[in-house]
Write a protein that binds this DNA or RNA. Sequence first.
DNA 1: CGCCCTTCGATTGTCTAACAAGTACACAAG
DNA 2: CTTGTGTACTTGTTAGACAATCGAAGGGCG
Lengths: 228, 228
Amino acid sequence: MSRVSAVSIVEAIASDIRSRVFSGELPALHALTETEVASSYDVARPTAKAAIEKLVAEGLLVRGVHKTARVADLGPESVRDIYQARAYLESEVLRRLASGKAVPEEAVRANNDIAALKTGAPLDVVEPDMRFHTSLVDALGNERISKMYLSLVGEVRLCMSRVQSLHLLDTNLIQAEHQRLLELIEAGRGDDAAQLLDEHLGRARERLVAAMGGEAGPEADLTSKLTD
Amino acid sequence: MSRVSAVSIVEAIASDIRSRVFSGELPALHALTETEVASSYDVARPTAKAAIEKLVAEGLLVRGVHKTARVADLGPESVRDIYQARAYLESEVLRRLASGKAVPEEAVRANNDIAALKTGAPLDVVEPDMRFHTSLVDALGNERISKMYLSLVGEVRLCMSRVQSLHLLDTNLIQAEHQRLLELIEAGRGDDAAQLLDEHLGRARERLVAAMGGEAGPEADLTSKLTD
DNA sequence: CGCCCTTCGATTGTCTAACAAGTACACAAG
DNA sequence: CTTGTGTACTTGTTAGACAATCGAAGGGCG
């Protein structure tokens, strides 16, 4: 019986389940029955139902009609879809930022944090990395775009919770590419920044796909994939 | 007592309320209490509650804690946010389509439909216009991007329901700019297409803002009149 | 006379209990 | 081995109820 209380019981339960999914405590395809959730949090079934439906709307859980909700099982095609969507959004963000030569301070800070951590724990890079990308998007100041990106970030974290060995990318390489992106923004070279980001995300995407057991797609060839 | 039955009662009620909001039958700030919805559709209150919460999640309704749900009142800043988000998304879409010189057939059809309607009813242009833009986004084949755009379209339609006199837009002008966009895609000139779209949406945005009582920005009359 | 405080109605958040309907799995029959 | 059936589990929906909270109306006091 976990105790949670915040602004709303439903939100508190949803938040707790969300973190348990991200931490990997609830593996993919794990079933989440309404009565089970209700009893484990000591609430009524409708409350548990609301929390589950909230997470289903976020994409963390999936369920069909009259079927138990399960932790989403994101296959390689989903990973590609998510990272492609990220690329679409962030490419345009970089162009707009570059056209104003606006380098977000928070992004600089986040990348410095990446450079600072010399620990071998591969998981520690995820948080500042996400903060870097999120701060770029937020710098646009568009409420809806930020919200959209937030939902993508949630799914990205869900992907990563499935891969224990996150030694997919070298920390130094990540930090260097981020630095380059910031420089391109400052130089007003939006097109180059967008292209670099495409490679940056494309590489991460295919590494992640491979780590998840999916057939490692033909590495990049970013120009031919747009209608596919 | 309206009769609705489809796949899910909640979804059916939400869908009906949605269309009533779009049609303007439910004006901005109109209150929608749970009991009121429940009795009008002859369902239990939790069912009505679920439908309302679904629409709140979509952004069509707004409500604070312990406050009755109301039809969203989108002010000028919200309209700008929405149209800016559209511009960000669609700009990148156009670039990607142009890089593959892929002109979606459905977009061509939709634009032909705009050209075909010579009726004076200004409302008739909304549907094919939305279909034009949506088909461009859908042509990317990215599930999440399409879903994001769909939610934006919903809010755009909500904006339009607030403006009775949709005579802001000249049908011929819209059709001509759409045609030009398609030509630029076919020519592979992504940057030019993105820029034209920015102007296209920017003017529409400021015209809509002005029609809603806000103060139009400088983009309102760059060349000639049109609204999207 | 006007302002602050209290009170009250209305509305939402949540609970308990229950029934109906659908799915999934096992088990038996052909 | 396939097919059909049946039972248990789960979800969809309803009803009624109580507590918490918000908004507004009304009374007390400066």
